[in-house]
């Protein structure tokens, strides 16, 4: 086989590998798995809430966009179709209870039924910020349950 044909085939192969890599690992890269991610901060749920409600900007810089592992006694669980929201309520305001709202991953839906307002739990998830009533944590998993 002539050299230029070999080079052409090799270049084509390399180009296909690059396209496949970009398609799989860049364009279609999976969402970050927050369940397996290491927490950036581990803290008490109450401390987290008051950090936001007392000075949202510094808390925003520290915690928003980070993986948080929070521990506390939940106030109640809201049922939302196939997922649950665990609520840690610390204040009462214009929108009712104010605190931390944690959206659980759907796989924890059944386990969320066992959560009560007497036992301390630890939850890990992605903090999307503070909406001036609640700290929102998404894609949460239950730790050690």
């Amino acid at each position: 086989m002539k050299n230029w044909i070999k080079v052409f085939i090799l270049a084509g192969f390399v180009a296909m590998c690059v396209i496949a890599y970009v398609w799989i690992f860049v364009y279609n890269k999976p969402h970050r798995n927050y369940e397996k991610a290491k927490a950036d901060y581990e803290l008490q749920a109450k401390d987290c809430y008051y950090h936001f409600s007392n000075g949202a900007e510094s808390a925003d810089i520290t915690y928003t966009g980070k993986v948080l592992e929070i521990t506390g006694i939940p106030t109640y669980v809201e049922d939302m179709d196939t997922c649950s929201i665990i609520v840690f309520a610390y204040e009462s305001g214009m929108f009712g209870d104010e605190g931390i709202r944690c959206s659980l991953l759907p796989k924890y839906y059944m386990q969320s039924k066992e959560i009560n307002n007497k036992e301390e739990i630890t939850i890990k998830g992605y903090c999307t910020g503070y909406n001036e009533t609640d700290v929102i944590i998404e894609q949460c998993s239950l730790i050690n349950r």
């Binding site: 969402h31 999307t128 909406n131």
Partner: peptide, 16 residues
């Protein structure tokens, strides 16, 4: 109504 922008969920991580 008030929306936290980081709470938007996309099908593709890159889009998000």
């Amino acid at each position: 109504f008030k929306v936290l922008m980081k709470s938007f969920s996309f099908e593709k991580a890159l889009m998000q």
